[in-house]
Amino acid sequence: MQQRTQEITIIGGGLVGLSVALGLLMAGQRVRVLDGADSDARASQGNFGLIWGQGKGWDFAPYANWTMDALTAWPAFAQQLRGLSGIDVALDQPGGYEFFTDPTEFDAFKAELAQQAIHLGKRARYEMLSGDDLRSQMQGIGPDVVGASFSLCDGHVNPLRFLRALRCSVQTMGGHVRLGATVSAIRPQPKGGFALVLADGETLYTEQVVLCAGLGAATLARDLGFNTQVRPQLGELLITEKLGDRLPFLSSTIRQVDEGGVQIGGTKANAGLNDHETLPIMSKLAHHAVTVFPALADVRVVRAWGALRVMSPDGYPVYAKSSMHPGAFLVTCHSGVTLAPLHASVLAEWILNTSATPELEAFDECRFALSHAA
């Protein structure tokens, strides 16, 4: 007969799952993380590494403020990870740019940032720069750039090093990370708790379960009474050779990693579960990069890949507690890097329902039912 455990089980060992696990461990809980197969769609291994706030939540105040909380928390979080894992995630928050070559798109984003600033109040920190302003302040910006926004709050990390630091930190804190443990079904038990059926037929038991499986959460969410439908969004990246000189800027589409190579990205496409890179998109990315910074025309591209983002119906995070099965939680978002400090701290208070529980009702999945009703 199987014996129940008292630990909390996290399904999903990516950035979101490991961040949540770390927060629960820091709160004194026993935590087990079940990570799936290497063949799974893994957003955590293909992301851009940005810590970014520009435009996020411009039409949804709770997300604007949640993102700003995370940006502010990142320096202390990076230090915490280094202390636990011994790994430097290469946090760099020098401020970031959004470059535009289309005047209409530039004006539209300016309006979005103005609305976001209303939500953030005194915490809003951005400025709008014309193309001429940019070229007078920064050498090398292309003549077709009509303007850019700039925010001091934005930055980036080394994404793969960050993933490794999270896993090591969870293990240092006593968490158990089990690799190759794909959960095929979750069965709520009559007297409470959950049976987790693995793909190999093994069954594990847990008192509480937090579903952080990204695109793999679709079927399992229904087992727990959740109705959020996550969908994939394809983003493609180009990686250049390592450069001896540093780029004079960080942007949401062009970033130089700490090892010297330049990542070029920023595409969004609905391609189902197809994560293959495509020649037309790669050409478009290269053209954008050279338009912004013509010196990149002489740099060789050495790799390219596609990765699938995890998107909720409205693109914002979902933090939901199951009303049908107490002890079950759903956590999903596409900003796993930016929001990690909050997932590894205050979100644990929400799961544990302590006196410090944050107000996260705005992120509940009931908003989708309300929008349909409206």
Rank of each mutant, 00 (worst) to 15 (best):
V346H: 06
F109S: 09
G180P: 04
V262I: 07
R246A: 03
G315C: 13
A43M: 09
A124N: 06
L160G: 04
I10W: 08
D92I: 01
S312L: 12
G225T: 05
A148Q: 12
D38T: 13
W305F: 14
H288W: 06
F60A: 01
A221Q: 07
L160Y: 01
L247F: 05
L224V: 01
W66H: 11
L160F: 01
D38E: 15
T9I: 00
G235Y: 03
T338N: 11
E365C: 04
L220E: 13
Q171F: 01
E359I: 01
S323P: 05
A165R: 00
G180F: 04
G147P: 08
G140L: 07
I51T: 05
V262Q: 07
G225P: 11
W58M: 11
V230R: 11
H288I: 00
T291L: 03
A304M: 04
F293T: 04
Q189I: 04
A148N: 14
V89H: 00
L196F: 01
G180I: 02
H288M: 05
Q93R: 10
D107R: 13
A289I: 13
T267L: 10
M173S: 12
K122F: 04
F226W: 05
F293W: 13
G131C: 07
A181Q: 05
H276M: 10
L238D: 03
L330Y: 07
Q115H: 09
F249L: 14
Q233T: 12
I118A: 15
E207A: 13
S355P: 08
L339Y: 06
R123W: 06
V290Y: 06
F99T: 00
P62E: 10
N158K: 10
Q189M: 13
D258W: 02
L196G: 02
G95V: 06
E259S: 13
A217T: 01
H343C: 09
A61F: 05
A286P: 14
P188I: 00
Q229I: 06
S283P: 08
M173T: 02
D102V: 04
K284V: 10
L370I: 13
P248Q: 03
T101D: 14
L279G: 08
F109L: 00
Q54D: 13
A269I: 06
W58E: 13
F368R: 02
D88H: 03
Q54I: 08
L247V: 07
G175A: 09
V257W: 04
E98F: 07
L342V: 06
P143E: 11
D275F: 03
L360I: 09
A111V: 02
T291I: 03
A344C: 14
I11E: 03
V157E: 10
R300H: 12
I11A: 06
F60R: 04
D200K: 00
W350H: 12
P248R: 09
Q3A: 14
M1L: 11
M173C: 15
T253Q: 10
G36D: 03
V31N: 07
V89I: 09
T354C: 10
G131Q: 07
C366H: 15
S371V: 06
I51D: 11
A373N: 14
T219F: 02
S322R: 11
D35Y: 00
N158H: 06
R82N: 12
L196E: 01
D35P: 07
R135I: 09
L204S: 10
A348H: 02
